[in-house]
């Protein structure tokens, strides 16, 4: 499969950016499609992994601050579409993207998988906290309820998302690496 794709790209080098962006957009669409599903083994007390957050982290790990923030903004808007526009997920995911891009992870951890799982764990907590802060300002729900629920959501979402992070990170990272390599050639 990948061999055939390589041959195709070699034959038509002009198609390469389109294929690259098509695969990237397709992976986002897959993440969106899996959001409403609750498959067995992906659920902890009704909570499922935050697939879009994993995608944003996978994207931002090796990119610049602005690329991370814009990817977060776009995916946040998409998550708004799937739930409700207020409070918006765009702020939380944009901050997650920017912070992930700024992290100098090679200074602390070497192994890619583990560091990505750790980053996803921390970022899931950050993202849920930003949503909870927005809910607190919005009113309508009582503060006690919001923050009690926040503890439960932040922890379960962080655990599940970090466990499932390699599923998104590994193929995407391989793809982007292969695209980057043919760039340098």
């Amino acid at each position: 499969m990948s061999q055939a794709l390589d041959n195709f790209i070699e034959q038509y080098p002009a198609s390469r950016p389109f294929i690259n962006w098509g695969v990237t957009a397709g992976s986002v669409f897959l993440c969106l499609l899996i959001l409403p599903a609750r498959l067995p083994g992906m659920e902890l007390a009704g909570i499922s992994p935050n697939w879009l957050l994993i995608w944003v982290v996978a994207w931002s790990v090796k990119r610049t601050l602005w690329q991370g923030a814009i990817a977060g903004l776009v995916l946040g808007l998409l998550q708004d579409a799937m739930t409700a526009p207020f409070p918006t997920h765009a702020i939380s995911l944009a901050i997650v993207g920017a912070v992930t891009a700024r992290l100098q992870k090679q200074r602390y951890v070497q192994e890619d998988f583990i560091s990505v799982a750790l980053i996803v764990f921390g970022m899931a907590v950050v993202a849920e906290t930003i949503i909870a802060i927005q809910f607190s300002f919005e009113g309508g729900r009582s503060l006690l309820e919001i923050w009690t629920y926040h503890q439960f959501v932040a922890l379960s979402s962080a655990i599940l998302s970090s466990l499932w992070a390699p599923v998104v990170y590994f193929p995407l990272n391989r793809w982007w690496e292969s695209m980057g390599q043919s760039d340098s050639i």
Binding site: W21, F29, L33, I70, L73, V74, L75, L77, A81, M82
Partner: peptide, 27 residues
């Protein structure tokens, strides 16, 4: 590319994710 991405996201948001839900239902 950035503006196309943001524009598409805004469009999907405006339609309450209709495209995604329809595909999901079909799948």
């Amino acid at each position: 590319l950035t503006s196309v991405a943001i524009g598409t996201a805004l469009l999907i948001r405006q339609t309450h994710g209709g495209v995604v839900l329809e595909t999901y239902q079909w799948l």
